[in-house]
Design a protein around this nucleic acid. Structure first.
Length: 389
DNA sequence: AAAACGTGGAC
DNA sequence: TGTCCAAGTTT
C-alpha cells in the first residue's frame, strides 16, 4: 500500500489504488463491526433526518431513547408538522440545543406544504431545509438517496486530519470546504452512505478524540499520523473561550394557586421552555444585611419581561443550600433561590407568568436548570407542600 | 468570522 | 470542581 514509506508529509495525495484499498478496508470492517442502531434499520429519509439532527453535538447513547420515543409520538413527517409545540418541546426536553426541535418542525412543514411531501433528493436541495446544514445534508443525501457526497462532521474532521496529517484548524469555518474537497474523491461511489457512516463509526471507536487506539484500527496502514507517531497532533483545533459567569436570582413565588412560572421568550436561550422567574442579580437591589434583596419597581430585567411597572413588594427569603449552577457552552449560571409565600393571588393575577399547581409543573417542558431548582425546592420543602407529583 | 446555542460523559 | 468533547447550524 506504499504509505509506510518515510517522510509522508501532510497533503500528499492518495493514488487511485490507495483510495480503492482504503474503501475496501473501511467497508469490510464496517460490514462486520458497524453498530446496529435504531435509525439504521432502513434508509427512510425521515428516520435518517431526525436521527442526524438529534445527533448534532450529541452522543449516540444519549440519542437512542429520545429517537425511539420521538418516532413513537411523531411517526411521520406529517405527524411532526402537525404536532402541538408543547408536545414537541417535551419530547426534546433534556436533549439540549432546543432550536433544533423547532427547526425540525419548521422543516417538516416545509416538506409537507412547499414540497407536497416529496423530499429533495440531493444535498444541495436538502440544505434548503431549515436546520439542515452541510453535514446533515450530506448525511441524508448519501444514506437515504445514495448521492456520492461526503458528510463532514467532527468524526470526519478528526479521522481525515489524522489519516492525511491535515493541520488546518478545524474550528475555522473555511476549513470545512477544504475537507469536503479532500474527502469527495475518496467517498465510495458504490456505497456513499455506508462510507460516511463507517467514517463516523471509526471516529467513535479506534479514532476517538481521547484514548484512541490507532494501532488496531482497520485503516491503520493508511494512517499517516500513526506512522509518524504524531496522532496526538491531529486534528488542530483552537479551544473555545471560557463560559461567562451569570449570577441570577431564581424567584420561587408560591400562592394558593401554585407556583409562578414563566415561559422563555423567542429571543432568549431555552426559548419555549418554562422556569421560575429569573432575574440577573445586577438588576436586583441587595439590601444592607445581604440576607435577601428588596424587590422594587426598578427590577429592569423583570419589568422588561413582564412589561408591567409592578410594585411587587414581595417578602423574599433565601432558600437554603448552595446556588443552583448550570454550565452552558458560553455561560455559567449561578442561581440563588429566593422564596415568597402569598396568601392571596389578587395582586398578581395580571402577571404574564402562569400559576402552576405543584403536580402540574412537570407536565411543562422544563430545561435542566429548572429541574435542579425544583429538586432543591422539594428537598427544602419550605411550604410543606404535600402534592408534588 | 465569530459567537450563540444544552446536556451528559470521561478523566 | 474543572476541562474537554460529542453525528453542527444559525445569525
Amino acid at each position: 500500500m506504499g504509505k509506510t514509506m518515510e517522510g509522508w508529509d501532510s497533503m500528499e495525495e492518495w493514488t487511485p489504488a490507495t483510495i480503492q484499498a482504503f474503501r475496501r478496508a473501511l467497508l469490510t470492517w464496517y460490514d462486520h463491526e458497524g453498530r446496529d442502531l435504531p435509525w439504521r434499520r432502513d434508509h427512510d429519509p425521515y428516520h435518517v433526518w431526525v436521527s442526524e439532527v438529534m445527533l448534532q453535538q450529541t452522543q449516540v447513547q444519549t440519542v437512542i431513547p429520545y429517537y425511539q420515543n420521538f418516532m413513537a409520538i411523531f411517526p411521520t413527517v406529517a405527524a411532526l408538522a402537525a404536532a402541538p409545540e408543547p408536545d414537541l418541546l417535551k419530547a426534546w426536553q433534556g436533549l439540549g440545543y432546543y432550536s433544533r426541535a423547532r427547526n425540525l418542525q419548521r422543516a417538516a412543514q416545509q416538506i409537507v406544504t412547499d414540497y407536497h411531501g416529496q423530499w429533495p433528493r440531493t444535498a444541495a436541495g436538502l440544505a434548503d431545509l431549515i436546520g439542515v446544514g452541510p453535514y446533515t445534508a450530506g448525511a441524508i443525501a448519501s444514506i437515504a438517496f445514495g448521492e456520492v457526497v461526503p458528510a463532514v462532521d467532527g468524526n470526519a474532521f478528526r479521522v481525515f486530519a489524522r489519516l492525511l496529517m491535515i493541520d488546518d484548524d478545524i474550528a475555522k469555518p473555511r476549513t470545512r470546504q477544504r475537507f469536503e474537497n479532500i474527502i469527495q474523491p475518496i467517498v465510495d461511489p458504490e456505497r456513499p452512505g455506508a462510507f460516511n457512516q463507517a467514517i463516523m463509526d471509526l471516529g467513535s471507536s479506534y479514532m476517538t478524540a481521547k484514548n484512541s487506539d490507532p494501532a488496531h484500527s482497520p485503516v491503520r496502514d493508511f494512517d499517516a499520523s500513526y506512522q509518524a507517531n504524531r496522532v496526538a497532533d491531529f486534528p488542530v483545533k483552537t479551544k473555545a473561550p471560557r463560559p461567562k459567569l451569570m449570577p441570577y436570582y431564581g424567584l420561587i413565588i408560591h400562592s394558593p394557586a401554585g407556583y409562578l412560572m414563566v415561559q422563555r421568550g423567542e429571543q432568549e436561550m431555552l426559548s419555549g421552555y418554562w422556569t421560575f422567574p429569573l432575574v440577573l442579580q445586577a438588576d436586583l437591589r441587595e439590601d444592607e444585611a445581604e440576607v435577601a434583596p428588596t424587590v422594587t419597581t426598578d427590577i429592569t430585567e423583570m419589568t422588561r419581561r413582564w412589561q408591567k411597572d409592578i410594585q411587587l413588594d414581595l417578602d423574599l427569603q433565601p432558600l437554603g443550600g448552595r446556588p443552583v449552577s448550570q454550565t452552558y457552552t458560553h455561560q455559567r449560571w449561578q442561581v440563588k433561590l429566593l422564596t415568597a409565600n402569598l396568601q392571596t393571588i389578587s395582586d398578581l393575577q395580571f402577571y404574564p407568568g402562569q400559576w402552576v399547581a405543584p403536580g402540574d409543573i412537570t407536565d411543562l417542558p422544563l430545561p435542566k436548570v429548572q429541574e435542579k431548582m425544583l429538586q432543591r425546592l422539594q428537598d427544602q420543602n419550605p411550604f410543606e407542600e404535600l402534592e408534588w407529583k
